[in-house]
């Protein structure tokens, strides 16, 4: 199913490429000298984390910040993620904080509403702990079932992401957005006899690449007019 997502991105890029045929003329107005100065700060929350937190097996939140430097956006995400999962033969819990830093490139420069279709990169860092309790029955019954209780007290990990998504201005300073994340190259250090399973901010460590998705609600605090990057036809 995820292949359709790639197709969607490809369609988005091709639409953007079509738009280039018009050979837009760059405005050489007074915006040029200060176009790389940020015009505002967008602060958002991830709605999916909050909705998932209604379930007993997940507690979490994520806040997102981005600010513009012309068509480039510097982004920071910070979040908390804790799971309490009932396993087929026991229970797994984890909790930890994470952050991501990165940049997005906006491909909708002509949009009068300043909506965004972006592609970006992130570097994620997570600090977390996890524990598991479970029962295994050996092949030879006389050895009896074994009860295990293991934990990793202080784990740290990092990963990379390629991101894509939209930011849509709904009304005034209120924006909605979504970010799809293709996460890869996870690495975790500090593990003992329990192999790290679920890294907050990333997901299942043994699966790479791993998909993530955020549906975000933003408020933008602007402090100056956004300069037009392209002249309208």
């Amino acid at each position: 199913m995820c292949k359709y997502f790639y197709s969607l991105i490809a369609v988005g890029i091709s639409l953007f490429a079509n738009g280039q045929n018009a050979a837009p003329k760059i405005i050489k107005a007074d915006t040029v000298s200060n176009r790389f100065l940020p015009t505002g700060l967008r602060i958002g929350i991830d709605a999916i984390s909050l909705i998932r937190s209604k379930d007993n097996s997940f507690k979490g939140w994520e806040v997102n910040f981005d600010t513009d430097f012309s068509r480039y956006y510097f982004t920071v995400d910070y979040g908390y993620w804790a799971t309490n999962q009932l396993l087929g033969n026991g229970r797994y819990t984890n909790a930890g904080n994470y952050f991501r830093v990165g940049a997005d490139v906006n491909f909708l420069l002509k949009d009068p509403e300043k909506n965004m279709f972006f592609i970006g990169m992130r570097y994620g860092v997570s600090a977390f702990n996890e524990s598991v309790e479970y029962k295994n029955t050996p092949l030879y019954p006389p050895f009896g079932p074994n009860q295990y209780a293991l934990s990793n007290g202080s784990l740290s990990g990092h990963w990379l992401e390629v991101t894509s998504g939209l930011r849509i201005r709904i009304v005034s300073s209120f924006w909605m957005g979504m970010t799809a994340r293709l996460k890869f190259a996870p690495s975790v250090s500090g593990a003992g006899k329990l192999s790290p399973y679920d890294m907050p901010g990333y997901g299942i460590v043994e699966e790479a690449p791993y998909w993530g998705f955020n549906y975000q609600l933003f408020w933008r605090f602007g402090w100056r007019e956004t300069p037009n990057l392209r002249e309208k036809k």
């Binding site: 999962q85 009932l86 396993l87 087929g88 033969n89 026991g90 797994y92 598991v132 479970y134 295994n136 074994n146 295990y148 293991l150 006899k193 329990l194 192999s195 399973y197 679920d198």
Partner: peptide, 16 residues
């Protein structure tokens, strides 16, 4: 030696 791994919630955890 041994190592514990969670396969998936519905599958459970196993000692390797």
């Amino acid at each position: 030696a041994e190592e514990s791994r969670v396969i998936a919630p519905k599958c459970g955890a196993y000692t390797f």
